[in-house]
Simulated assay, not measured.
Amino acid sequence: MDDFIARPDGDLSWLVSRGEAAGDAGFTPFMESVDALLMGRSTYQAIADQDDWPYLGRPVHVLSSTLPADVDPRITVHRDVAAAVDVLSEAGHRRVYVDGGRTTRAFLEAGLITELTLSRVPVLIGQGAPLFGPLSADIELEHVRTEVLGGGMVQTTYRVLPRADATPESVARAV
C-alpha cells in the first residue's frame, strides 16, 4: 500500500502474504491480455529462480547492460531501451507488459505507456524500492476501472494521458 515494489534487500515475500485467499490476484487474465513482457534486470533477477515460470508462454524481454545474452533460454536480453522497442515492434507486439520500477519510469517518461494497471496488496512494508521514484514532470492519468480481488487486493487501471513534451528520443535520456 505504501508504493514500494520490493524490500530494500529485494525481498518480495510480502507480495504473496495473502496466500490462497488472493488466488492469482488477477494475474492470469492480465497475462492473457498481453503479447509480451519487458522487464528490467532487477525484476528479472527477483523471479529468475522460480520453477514455475508464470508468463503463460509470452515472450519475456529483459533490459540489462550486464546480463549475458545467453543467461536464460526463457528470455531475450537487450542492452538498451531503443533495441528492445525495435525488436518488440518488429515482432508485432502491440500490448507489452512493462515491469520493474526503473523500466516503467523510463517508459512513462518517454510517453510509451498508454495504460497503467496497479495492484495493491493490503500490507505496509515501510521502506524499499519505490515503484515510480522521481519523474521529470507530472504524468496525468484517467481512471478506467477498479476491482477488488481476493485477499483484499485492489487492482486499478488508468489510461495514461499523452504528454506534450515526450518524444521517442526521450527514451534514451529517461533510462
Rank of each mutant, 00 (worst) to 15 (best):
V144R: 02
P29A: 03
H93D: 08
R163N: 15
R41S: 15
A84R: 03
A91F: 04
D80L: 05
V62P: 03
R79P: 00
V96A: 07
V160R: 02
D165L: 11
A46S: 15
F132T: 13
A6P: 01
S170F: 07
V16K: 11
H78R: 01
D11L: 05
F107E: 03
D24L: 10
D49S: 15
L112T: 03
M1G: 15
M39L: 13
D2W: 07
A172D: 09
G128Y: 06
L116K: 10
F132G: 02
L88T: 00
L15D: 13
A48R: 13
D9N: 07
L131C: 06
I125W: 07
L12C: 13
D9L: 05
S119D: 15
V96G: 09
H78S: 03
R7M: 14
V96L: 04
S170W: 09
S170Y: 04
M31G: 02
V144W: 01
S13H: 14
R95S: 10
I125D: 04
S89Q: 00
S17L: 14
R58I: 09
V77D: 01
P29L: 12
A164C: 02
D11R: 05
F107M: 13
M31H: 07
D3S: 07
G10H: 03
R145F: 06
E142Y: 04
D49E: 15
A25I: 01
L88S: 01
Y97F: 15
G151W: 06
M39E: 05
R163W: 02
L15G: 10
L131K: 08
S13K: 12
V148N: 09
A6C: 08
T157P: 00
L131T: 08
I5T: 04
S17P: 11
L38F: 06
Y55W: 12
L135M: 14
R74C: 04
A21V: 05
A137F: 10
Q155N: 03
V171S: 10
A166Y: 01
D2H: 07
P59I: 12
V154K: 03
L56G: 07
A48K: 11
L56A: 12
D86K: 08
A137P: 00
D72Y: 02
A83H: 05
T146V: 12
I75D: 03
A82L: 10
Q45D: 15
D9A: 06
D138A: 12
S89E: 08
V87D: 14
R159I: 00
G10P: 02
P73S: 10
D72C: 10
R95F: 05
A166F: 05
H93Y: 09
R173N: 14
T146E: 04
R145T: 07
E140F: 08
H93N: 12
A137W: 08
T76Q: 09
P168G: 11
A172T: 11
D138N: 05
A36N: 10
V77W: 11
G57M: 01
